[in-house]
Amino acid sequence: MEKWQNQTEKQMLEQIRSSIGKVQLPVDSYNEQIMNRIEHMEIKGGSKLLKKTLAAACVAVMIGLGTVTAGFISPVWADTLSQFPVFSSIFKHTENPGLKLAAEKGLTTSTNMSVTKDGVTLSVTEVFYDGTRLAIGFERAGIMDERVLAEITDFKTHDFDQSTKGLLGLPVVTQVSGEPISFGSSSTGDVQGQPQTFLLELNELRNTAALGDEFKVDISVPVAQIAEPFEFQVTVKKVTEGVINLTPGQGASKGSFKYTVKSLDITPATLRLIVTSEGEVPASPDQTGEYAPTAVFYELVDDAGNVINPRNGGYVLAKAVQHPIVDSLYNTFPQIPKTVTVRPYTFTLDSELNLLTDANGENVKTYHKELETTIVIP
């Protein structure tokens, strides 16, 4: 099994020097100027430039010298730049506010691990784990195609489109023992505004107590037209600062319907609510006849009036579906709340199983005031 190789700064510098030397710049002396600038650049605290910034620095230096302008980058130079992963924070640019906040607070772990096969380089740039979800950032280099993820042709077998070299299939994450990482839902997608990158999230993680606060995972990523997958072994460290784990055991009832908040976990980047319930889904007078309620969803409101809804707030195209256990992730509140009020609600389906919408095209929510419960955050 081919594992990642951790290049030294000197090796990375020599690799960049070699590539720059092959590029035809308009002024021959620029090659030496670029390397001199890179070799003397420093970051705060006086430490030498870290290897993860060398490629980006190379580009920045060229811009500073005025050699990179619109329409001036040669195809050779563009191809050279594509060989180097930039290692910027993918999480800072994601649309997920929780991950973005975690990156800004320095709660993510940089890995900067790379594997190169047949001209394609794949890197694991950073990891975030807070006990509720595991997020992993990836960056590809060596391929100019703007597409990163291949079309999955069979989600059961994970088969994917192999027609274009360098397109990536679905990553597989396991414990080093080979046991899978158990989760409720997952998502994989490109990061908007960050070319050649993608983000994997494993949500509603289960059996996390057995994993501990630090553990290793094996990551395997298949790549189109390359025989062997790209493999990494990454150390995952749990964020523990600012984490609140509650087991309120409180709830409310209406008619035969009863729910209990089994747990409420608040982290700097995620909020997770697990609810158990029983009985028939409550219905309002407007949800009778040709109309009927959906399953019950749970909106959360803090003491400042901030409202958040589940990230995985999909609905089943069936009436009054009862889910004995609901495990939902939410984006975090702006700050740790003093109280969190749980507001159960349903949507409304018509006889053709279409969701009822208002004049603005928004799905109509039916709240059940008597089912609300407020949890005090210690």
Rank of each mutant, 00 (worst) to 15 (best):
Val115Trp: 00
Thr346Lys: 08
Leu356Tyr: 06
Gly212Met: 03
Phe297Glu: 00
Gln322Tyr: 06
Tyr30Asp: 11
Gln162Pro: 01
Glu280Leu: 02
Leu273Lys: 01
Trp77Asp: 08
Val316Asp: 02
Lys3Trp: 13
Val172Thr: 15
Phe215Glu: 05
Ala295Pro: 07
Asp159Leu: 11
Thr116Val: 14
Gln175Met: 14
Ala141Tyr: 09
Gln194Ala: 13
Ala210Tyr: 07
Ile34Met: 05
Lys117Pro: 05
Phe72Gln: 15
Tyr315Ala: 01
Asn245Ser: 15
Gly66Glu: 10
Thr80Asn: 07
Leu168Val: 12
Asn6Gly: 03
Glu139Val: 10
Glu280Thr: 13
Ser182Asn: 11
Gln175Ser: 14
Glu9Asp: 03
Ser29Met: 10
Ala103Gly: 12
Lys48Leu: 11
Val86Cys: 14
Ser177Val: 02
Phe297Pro: 03
Ser163Leu: 10
Tyr291His: 01
Ile377Cys: 00
Val376His: 09
Thr164Gly: 00
Leu349Gly: 07
Phe72Met: 14
Asp161Cys: 06
Ser182Ile: 08
Lys51His: 03
Asp358Phe: 09
Leu371Cys: 01
Leu355Asp: 06
Asn245Phe: 09
Ser187Leu: 02
Asn354Val: 10
Leu122Glu: 05
Leu101Ala: 13
Thr276Asp: 13
Thr247Met: 07
Tyr298Leu: 09
Gly142Phe: 04
Met144Leu: 15
Ile90Met: 14
Leu122Ser: 02
Tyr30Ala: 05
Thr208His: 07
Pro334Lys: 01
Lys369Thr: 11
Thr357Pro: 13
Lys51Arg: 12
Trp77Gln: 12
Pro85Ile: 06
Val191Arg: 06
Ser253Ala: 04
Lys51Met: 10
Asp302Trp: 07
Arg147Gly: 10
Val342Met: 07
Gly71Ile: 00
Gly66Trp: 09
Ala141Ile: 03
Ala227Ser: 14
Pro222Arg: 04
Ser19Phe: 05
Val326Trp: 06
